[in-house]
């Protein structure tokens, strides 16, 4: 077990290194930050000084060498806009993003898995149809639209919740629900689909034949086995969540990493883009390592090689 974890952690290194290399190349070919950070009428000498100060005048391979050297020590350089270390800009906002993403994920799991189990167990009944119809809604509406409609309805018309910002639970409600809606659908449907598969497997029938009650059969035997693909989907959705916070944080003025990321990409603030990509990749890899470990806990047939 420990050997497996260590091996996986070692394997993470090339993944993150690869991501950093690709994102470095992509950001550097996508434009010059000088154009975006200084006003368009800035004289050439001032532009040249800016480029020199931030090392943008050097050949790209030299820039990459310098970047790698510092990155190895956990230093992604200073933001071109904020005059602060890029890593600090990201870590300062990580808490807000984690809060939002965890709330959304918890909400989605708390609603999605029971809904999926009920839908599978009561297949083709009114409950199944209702669950499928509602989860459909979350999938069919772009989150930027959903967020805006939510603000207009709950903040402006009804006056129940604040329109944006971070602070109390009331501030968290709208962005978390908006972010969760797209996930609930996916989790509920995957659960339903996998439960249907499992409910017809031999061991479930055996359990039933042995006279176990319906509830333990469904909630323990079946769900435990249906959980593996559901877990895969949840693990993959961490990437979706990190992408989703980009839009949700912008619409609800949530002070998180997603908003920082999109502004950094637009401004070609290379160090910040690199730092965000690094942290997103790290979180993603860690979560999926945990998911893979959980596989083995849930299904002894999967061994560690």
């Amino acid at each position: 077990m420990l050997r497996y974890v260590l091996r996986r952690i070692v394997l993470t290194v090339p993944v993150i290194a690869g991501i950093l290399l690709i994102s470095f190349l992509l950001t550097h070919v996508s434009g010059d930050p000088t154009d975006l950070i200084l006003p368009p009428d800035t004289p050439d000498e001032a532009r040249a000084l800016f480029r020199e100060k931030h090392g943008l005048d050097r050949p790209i391979w030299v820039q990459f060498y310098v970047f790698s050297l510092h990155a190895l020590q956990g230093d992604f350089g200073n933001s071109l806009r904020f005059h602060e270390p890029a890593v600090k800009l990201v870590t300062d906002r990580l808490g807000a993003t984690t809060e939002l993403a965890m709330a959304a994920m918890a909400l989605a799991i708390a609603v999605g898995i029971p809904a999926g189990v009920v839908a599978a167990y009561r297949r083709n009944t009114a409950a199944d149809v209702a669950i499928r119809a509602v989860s459909l809604f979350g999938q069919a509406v772009p989150s930027f639209y959903l967020g805006i409609v939510a603000i207009l309805v709950f903040a402006v018309w009804l006056g129940w919740l604040p329109s944006g910002g971070r602070g109390t639970l009331a501030h968290l409600a709208l962005p978390a629900i908006t972010l969760a809606l797209g996930l609930v659908a996916l989790i509920a449907r995957t659960t339903r689909s996998c439960m249907l598969d499992v409910l017809n497997q031999d061991y479930v029938r055996t359990a039933r034949a042995k006279g176990l009650g319906e509830a333990p059969v469904v909630w323990v035997h079946a769900l435990r086995n249906a959980f593996i693909p559901v877990l895969t989907v949840i693990g993959l959705q961490v990437g979706f969540l990190l992408g989703g916070v980009v839009v949700t944080e912008t619409v609800f003025s949530w002070p998180g990493v997603g908003r920082l990321a999109v502004q950094a990409i637009y401004a070609r603030d290379f160090p910040v883009v690199q730092a965000v990509v690094f942290f997103f990749a790290l979180i993603f890899v860690i979560v999926n390592l945990i998911v893979d470990l959980l596989y083995a806990v849930l299904d002894p047939r999967i061994g560690y090689r």
């Binding site: 805006i148 603000i151 903040a155 402006v156 604040p162 329109s163 912008t250």
Partner: peptide, 18 residues
Amino acid sequence: WRPVPDDISRAAGLTTGE
């Protein structure tokens, strides 16, 4: 000073008195 990037949220917060 509150940074509110979305145009519609900014107007909404003004309407609600935030």
